[in-house]
Design a protein around this nucleic acid. Structure first.
Lengths: 105, 105
DNA sequence: TTGACAGGCAACCAAATGGTTGCATATTGT
DNA sequence: ACAATATGCAACCATTTGGTTGCCTGTCAA
C-alpha cells in the first residue's frame, strides 16, 4: 500500500492516470504527447512507478506496449484507509469544535 | 490537493494520523513516544507537513500544542478523485480482460 | 536486408526529503 | 526568581526523486 500512496503523490503520475482513464490502453509515445515538455524516458519512469504500485497493467503487443489503468488499489485505499477516517468525520469535527471552545475556558 | 497526497505519501505521517484518530488532541511529546526511535524534531516536521496539508489542526494551550485530526481533505479525495476511478472499476477490469484476450488473436 | 519506429537500460545531475544536532524561546511550578 | 518542561528555528547531512542524455535492443514495413 505504501507504493500506491507514493505513486499517487506525484502530479504527473496522477495526470497519467487521468489520461489513461480517459483513453485506456495507450502506448508510451501516445502518453508522452500531451504531458508537457517531458522526455519519453521520464514518462517511462513514471509509468514504471505506477506499474510497480499495480496502478497500471501493461501488455506488450508487437513492438508497442499498451497501458491499462487498474483501479483496484485505489479502491482498496478508499475501503481500508479513507473509510476509517470518513466514518469518524463528523465526530472528529465536533470534537475539534468542542476542544477549541474549551480552550478559552 | 497536491499537498494532501504528498503528505499522505509517508508512512510515518500516516501513522501519526492513525494515532491521532485513536486519541485526538495529543501534544508533540505525546506523539513522539511510540513513534519508534525518531527525534522530536523529526516528528515536529512531519506534523508541520500534515498541518500544511490541512490534515491536522492545532491549538496552542499554554506551553503545549494540541494536535487534532482533520478528516475533511481525505474525504475530499474520496469524493473527487477516488470516486472517479471507483465508478469505472468494473468497466476497466472487463476492458483489461478483453484486451488481454484480444492480444493473443 | 535495411531503415525507421517503439521501447528499455544505465549513468549522471539537481533538487527535494527525512532525519539529525544544537541552540533559542516561552510557559509553568515551586 | 529559577529550574524544568514543551516547543520552535536553523544549519547541516544522506538518500531519494524527477529529470536528462546517450546508447542498445527488438519489431515492423518496404
Amino acid at each position: 500500500m505504501d507504493a500506491v500512496f507514493k505513486a499517487l503523490a506525484d502530479g504527473s503520475r496522477r495526470e497519467l492516470l487521468d489520461r489513461l482513464r480517459a483513453d485506456n490502453g495507450q502506448t508510451l509515445n501516445e502518453l508522452c504527447a500531451g504531458l508537457g515538455g517531458m522526455t519519453r524516458q521520464a514518462v517511462s519512469k513514471h509509468l514504471g512507478v505506477l506499474e510497480e504500485a499495480n496502478l497500471v497493467a501493461t501488455i506488450k503487443r508487437g513492438r508497442e506496449k499498451l497501458h491499462y489503468l487498474n483501479p483496484v488499489p485505489i479502491h482498496e485505499i478508499a475501503e481500508r484507509w479513507i473509510g476509517k477516517f470518513e466514518r469518524s468525520r463528523l465526530d472528529a469535527l465536533s470534537a475539534l469544535k468542542a476542544a477549541l471552545e474549551a480552550g478559552d475556558a
